[in-house]
Design a protein around this nucleic acid. Structure first.
Lengths: 340, 340
DNA sequence: CGGTTTTTGGTTGACGTACATCATTTACTA
DNA sequence: TAGTAAATGATGTACGTCAACCAAAAACCG
């Protein structure tokens, strides 16, 4: 099976390879008529540019940075592990990845990390953003310097970030609500919500989606003010245990952020019959799903997100098209029976 | 940023590039001590083989075939569209993909399609298998001729196929059951099951998983004998409508194969309050989820599966490692709120 | 109309690995 | 021990695209 090369196209079009290359890469300096001739020849021979050869010839290597919170959440542990794995893998393709872990929930730390990069920013950066004007400004400065920026897991709209790699968090909240709506059989009751922090846009959005559905469709369920667990299992356990002890009307619980271990411990200790939806796929949530303490877990796949961020950053820096269907991050629902 | 090449490794190890190359590709003709020296040097310089250069130098192009049923299911329409998309994309990477559509549910047709390929089999083949000895034999013959074989969507174990690209169908059945278990609030009732055909292993397995959970955990629910819908909406509609008319105790329905449109029409017409779980993400199931006719849809992502099949076949033919976490096909659960 | 810029097209050598070929050394056989 | 086979190492070219550099023609300007 013979492969059509730029050489063949050149011959067919009656020009040199250089001209074909110019047309291929949309460089200037080619007459319209020549462009047409080349395009015709490419079509006739059904020429497809060889990606490997192009990559090699370009010789360019890409440098991307990930800025992620250092928090000891099960989820962020996974994320950091996946970034490390991606780093190794990407180096085969001339992609250098660097990960910078910053103190969680701290806008200044994020901005400082960005500034510290200095000339070392490279071609693109993936940031787990938090809602803050100084972060927005920092992102806009990066963009002005020609650095591609994607937000990752937690978005910050109205900034110059080119893409958001993550789930639709409002929808995730809605899913939690519509699952709990079906899981709860009690005619009436209270619903507890455990979140991490109100500066995390993803948490706020999930809460919003959750309340939308609860308000519209579950008049029999009363959503309590949310508990801020600071993504720490200990804090979550303590606050939630207290709430469960005080309030025996709680029939459902949505834990939308980190510290899920604390949720599990509190529920187990309280021995109450509560329908529970959480986030994070860890050994703890797995066990809790199997034992029935938790009913469902809503997840965004860290390995998929990391791969997606790398592919997206690469596509952005070389102005290549993005395969939307591949880059869509799913809101994954896990119950006891479809655990990976 | 300087890139370490095989050249550098050779210099550091005090050998020639050819020797480095032999070590790299595990060719014979190198002394153990030399191999060690080279490995040391590679480690010290943290050498990583440049994938693009390797691909280019190899010059080899891959030829893969997909054998899929021609059935007009929403799902298989998607699958075929995705294969076509993959074909275009893969040609950038020297991968030629050919798709052969065969009459559905027909073992002879699959075998004939394989035989017809003759010398044209190429390097690998992905088959939507059906349970049949002649298919098994055909796969084994392919393997003996050095063709890599993966099964796709529907598996045929005990054959020489190297991998199965698809979901754990028993688990999918279990998921359906454990969802319906929670969705049904009636104290007692019948459960209907609509399937395609008993020669499709994926259908049989889903049914199996469904019954496991139903029997073990839902003594109050009585699973009726399954309806064979032959993956045709018309047939499904007719048979199911009849069943619903005859039996007013039906509180839940699991449609585990094609012809979902028929399910939706029958349920809508019957106006009965049945909890429904189906497969396939199509405009019909989307609408039905939103309107509440269907409660959940269990899906395997066609685009992910096709990409996975191509990556897997490629890895197999060049003996490269497979990234398990990337190739795991999820049992995706869609409810009204996490529709893509 | 000489000189300069702009447009257009050609030539040539990277890029980093794979692999065929040749050269040398070592091991083995009759 | 000559002769051959096997093991090991060195050299050079191909792969297909990119891009720097050069050449020629066309357009422009005072």
């Amino acid at each position: 099976m013979y492969r059509v090369t730029a050489q063949d196209v050149a011959k067919a079009a009656g020009v040199s390879v250089a001209t074909v290359d110019r047309v291929l890469n949309e460089r200037k300096g080619v007459a319209q008529t020549t462009i047409a001739k080349v395009h015709n020849a490419m079509e006739k021979l059904s020429f497809v540019r060889d990606q490997a050869a192009a990559d090699l010839a370009r010789g360019k290597s890409y440098r991307f940075n990930f800025i992620v919170p250092a928090g000891e959440t099960a989820f962020f542990n996974d994320v950091r592990r996946e970034i490390e794995a991606a780093r190794q893998n990407a180096s085969k393709n001339r992609i250098e990845i660097q990960m910078i872990a910053v103190p969680p929930l701290n806008a200044e730390a994020i901005v400082a990390a960005i500034e510290d990069l200095g000339e070392d920013v490279g071609d693109g950066i993936a940031i787990v953003a938090i809602e803050s004007q100084i972060v927005r400004d920092a992102i806009n400065r990066l963009r002005k310097n020609g650095v591609n920026v994607v937000t990752f897991i937690s978005d910050i709209p109205n900034s110059g970030r080119e893409r958001f790699i993550g789930i639709d968090n409002v929808a995730a909240g809605r899913v939690a609500a519509s699952l709990l709506k079906r899981f709860v059989s009690a005619p009436v009751g209270d619903v507890a919500v455990v979140a991490g922090s109100s500066v995390l846009r993803d948490h706020v959005e999930r809460r919003m989606g959750f309340e939308q559905v609860m308000r519209a469709e579950c008049p029999h369920l009363n959503v309590l003010p949310w508990i801020e667990g600071e993504e720490l299992a200990g804090v979550v356990d303590e606050k939630l245990s207290k709430l469960l002890a005080e309030n025996s009307n709680i029939v459902a619980l949505y834990s939308l952020g980190g510290g899920t271990r604390g949720v599990i411990e509190a529920i187990e200790a309280a021995k109450s019959d509560v329908s529970v939806v959480t986030t994070e796929l860890s050994e703890h949530t797995r066990d809790a799903l199997i034992s029935g303490v938790i009913d469902a877990v809503l997840v965004q796949d860290p390995s998929h997100m990391v791969r997606s961020a790398v592919r997206t950053l690469r596509a952005l820096t070389e102005n290549a098209p993005i395969n939307e269907s591949q880059e869509r991050i799913r809101i994954e629902i896990y119950v006891r029976d479809n655990l990976p």
